[in-house]
Design a protein around this nucleic acid. Structure first.
Lengths: 199, 199
DNA sequence: TTGACAACAGAACAGTCGTTCGGTAGCTTA
DNA sequence: TAAGCTACCGAACGACTGTTCTGTTGTCAA
């Protein structure tokens, strides 16, 4: 049966408990806390398990030898629409590492804001009321970008376009008019992503 | 000048350095590492600064007295569409704490997958090609839910509906037909959120 | 029935942790 | 010019950390 002599078993239940702990506290606990978390009473055995998770890429060390989440720790199963033939447990097959959704969406934390969308003026761009817009704050943008602009002391989300040398804001909904600002157009930032929660 | 006698100064540069460190390692370092990170040579002074960040809500402790990020540590500025009159620096006004986008979207990490959307069959529900669907894996769902089902060994995203006692999958695009599965409908999970990255 | 291995327990230990306390230098305020 | 505060430094200490090493128990194959 020793087909894979290199791989010692590693308990997925342990990983889940650690991930739950991390989700709550955003920190990897010490070995003794891990011990009680895992229901183990010997630190030495905790160390052994940690080493396995480390070798599997779920845990890692900082330069100062502090335990930290590894590359695969945040791995969420990313499943592709097209799945190969025999799928006993569909999503398991493709283990693609996409770290955090935050990391996926936010490139420059200090310049990134979230703006809650009101109204349906951008519905044809798939932007619905209540969605959260990930906005990178910057004073200018390119034609074609979806921008968050400040018009009459309110935020509006629109496509940026140009008409006879002037910037205009175009909605993605025929029911709304194009906004042609008199004077300078004040841009708050450009859309870098979108987050929607359902239910 | 002692108008606010209660508030000792806390250095925002320290916080930024900590946040950068955390962004890289996903862990709060020890006092001695913090000391070198902040360019301080006395641990006692690090302890003092940490206490201030703790009192301000940026740091916190686990039940086991390990240092961890506090509620405001991940704070991203969430700006509302309607902003009051005088807006010199629009987004600053509303400091709303929404922790991580991950926390916002995923409730049960172990049962949550991400599915990349192919095709435009759900475009009227604001689900575009290339979007990432946050899916909570579960074998059944309610009518009206957007579900990820397995049909002919492929994932499909559709509305779940019922027709004459049988479950059917309805697209949100008139160009696509309703799917009426013969036999059992295999549900992979229900949509809990949506993530889109632009550019 | 022996041996090998995996899954643990427990003790011992040096290094590191965070805390406490006593100190100093510079700036205000009175 | 003395008193008081803030921003730091440095040493000492006990508690806790992760490591190592030596068992013990159960399972499975030969």
């Amino acid at each position: 049966m020793a087909l894979n002599p290199q791989k010692p078993a590693l308990d997925p239940a342990y990983l889940e408990k650690l991930q739950d702990y991390y989700a709550e506290h955003k920190v990897i606990p010490s070995y003794s806390v891990l011990a009680t978390l895992w229901g183990i009473s010997a630190k030495s055995w905790v160390a052994e398990c940690v080493k396995r998770f480390e070798e599997a890429g779920y845990l890692d060390w900082t330069p100062d030898r502090q335990l930290k989440p590894g590359a695969r720790f945040f791995e969420r199963r990313l499943a592709d629409s097209t799945v190969q033939a025999g799928l006993p447990n569909p999503a398991i097959s493709e283990g693609y590492d996409l770290v955090t959704i935050d990391d996926y969406l936010v490139r420059v934390p200090s310049r990134t804001s979230l703006v809650r969308v009101k109204g349906d003026s951008m519905i044809d761009a798939g932007i619905h009321e209540g969605d959260l817009l990930v906005v990178e704050q910057q004073p200018n943008a390119n034609v074609g970008d979806i921008v968050v602009a400040i018009v009459d002391n309110e935020f509006t989300v629109k496509y940026l376009d140009r008409e006879r040398g002037n910037f205009v804001l175009k909605p993605a909904n025929k029911a709304y008019p194009v906004i042609r600002p008199r004077g300078r157009l004040e841009i708050f930032g450009v859309m870098a992503g979108l987050v929607r929660r359902v239910r």
